[in-house]
């Protein structure tokens, strides 16, 4: 916090943005909106991470086939995040376990963290955007 205040008024400070994703894909628009904001925001060269908690972990489930529900399958786009220099994807261990999933069920490499570590990481952010 103090570091941020010292830099207040500076225009070129890179801020730490965290996108907190807690909703499953398709049932609501949150997951897709978050992804689009991340991709658009990538043009601003900030320090961006994405976190997947609760049903948000389902966004990264392998094998999504949306042809029969008439919605675009946007899950392959998570694999493009690396091209946008967004390489920090965190998944909460407790959320995965509550859903009987492991990192092997996910379509991108992620860092699995327990709640305590993730909570600490959230506190270090300048901005946390919740979806």
């Amino acid at each position: 916090m103090s570091g941020m205040e010292e830099n207040e008024g500076g225009t070129d400070k890179v801020k730490r943005f965290m996108f907190l994703n807690r909703k499953a894909p398709y049932g609501t628009i949150y997951a897709l909106e978050s992804l689009e904001v991340v991709l658009i925001g990538a043009a601003f060269d900030q320090n961006v991470s994405m976190v997947f908690v609760d049903d948000g972990v389902y966004q990264l489930k392998k094998g999504q086939q949306t042809k029969d529900i008439g919605q675009k399958n946007f899950s392959p786009t998570y694999r493009a995040l690396e091209d946008y220099d967004i390489e920090k994807l965190y998944v909460e261990q407790e959320s995965l376990e509550a859903r009987g999933l492991t990192a092997d069920d996910l379509l991108v490499p992620v860092e699995v963290l327990p709640s305590a570590a993730l909570g600490a990481l959230m506190e270090e952010q300048d901005v946390v955007l919740s979806f």
Partner: peptide, 29 residues
């Protein structure tokens, strides 16, 4: 295998449970 599975399994003993296939496939299951 989820934290909620047991409740459904219990209910299924006396009820018919259905899922909509296209929604299941969309979510990767």
């Amino acid at each position: 295998g989820t934290a909620e599975s047991a409740k459904l399994a219990e209910a299924a003993k006396a009820r018919k449970i259905y899922v909509l296939g296209p929604d299941l496939a969309a979510r990767g299951f």
